[in-house]
Simulated assay, not measured.
Amino acid sequence: MPEEFSQDITNAFKDSYVFEFLNLPEPYNENDLQKGFIKQMKNFILELGRDFIFIDEEYRVQVGNSDFYIDLLFFHRGLQCLVAFELKAEKFKPDHLGQLNFYLEALDRNVKKPHENPSIGILLCKDKEDEVVEFALSRSLSPTLVSEYQTQLPDKKLLQQKLHELFENNGTT
């Protein structure tokens, strides 16, 4: 993969997203999350950034005689590639990457057009531990990112307290 394309991928996606507009009640599952994104597609795309074109939900790819379903499939105009989103209503686990890499391989072999760049996978997890993600991605050859999301912003008082603590710590050092 060309280094320039790799840098473009990094610049096109965020490390963390806020999906407060979904208004999901706790607890929720991956199906609730997916339905929320479809219902709020405009807001979802605005949170992702420019150049995303929605292709389908539960996008079917066939490998051998088996059907598999990608939670959400987009095309990114700027990167000229398919972008598969796998949604997890739980903390990141390394085995999530195996499923996503399988989907990317199926897309690249059976769906991607010859002039398009390799497909990108985005694993949206409720939470992630950076060191675990780093280890899990260290041997991955596919362009894959792990982003966390929040379904609501932290409480205003908590944000004010953290901001106050930050200013106090910077003033004393």
Rank of each mutant, 00 (worst) to 15 (best):
T10S: 14
R60F: 08
D32V: 10
H76K: 10
E30M: 05
R50V: 02
K42E: 12
F74S: 10
I38P: 01
I45Q: 04
I53E: 14
L33H: 06
I55A: 08
D32E: 11
D51H: 15
P25M: 08
Q7T: 13
K39G: 03
D15N: 04
D51C: 10
Q7I: 13
I70R: 00
C81M: 10
S66H: 15
P25A: 09
D67N: 08
Q80N: 14
P25Y: 07
L79A: 06
T10N: 12
R60Q: 12
H76F: 08
Q7R: 15
E26R: 02
F75D: 00
E58R: 07
D15T: 07
I55V: 08
Y69A: 08
F52C: 07
E47K: 03
L48G: 03
G78A: 10
R50L: 04
P27I: 00
E30I: 05
Y17P: 02
F44D: 05
K35Y: 05
E57R: 15
E4K: 15
F74A: 10
T10L: 14
L48D: 02
N31A: 14
E20C: 05
D32M: 12
K39A: 10
D32C: 13
I38D: 01
F37N: 02
D15F: 05
F5E: 11
A12Y: 00
Y28S: 01
I53Q: 12
D67M: 05
L82Q: 11
N65H: 15
Q34N: 12
L72R: 02
R50E: 02
V63L: 07
I55G: 03
D15C: 06
I53R: 12
L79Y: 03
N65V: 11
N31I: 15
N65S: 15
L24A: 02
F44T: 09
E47R: 04
F75I: 00
R50G: 02
H76D: 08
Y59F: 08
D32P: 05
Q40K: 05
S16K: 10
R77E: 04
E58N: 07
F74L: 12
E58W: 07
P25C: 08
P25Q: 09
L73P: 00
D8M: 15
Q34K: 14
K14G: 09
Y28K: 02
K35A: 07
K39Q: 06
M41D: 00
Y69I: 09
D15R: 02
F5W: 14
R50W: 02
A12S: 00
I70G: 01
D71Y: 07
L24I: 01
G49C: 14
L73C: 10
C81Y: 07
Q34I: 10
D51V: 09
Q80R: 14
C81H: 08
Q7N: 12
R60D: 09
S16H: 14
N31D: 14
D71P: 02
I38L: 00
D8N: 15
N43Q: 04
F37E: 01
E57V: 13
L72N: 01
K14Q: 12
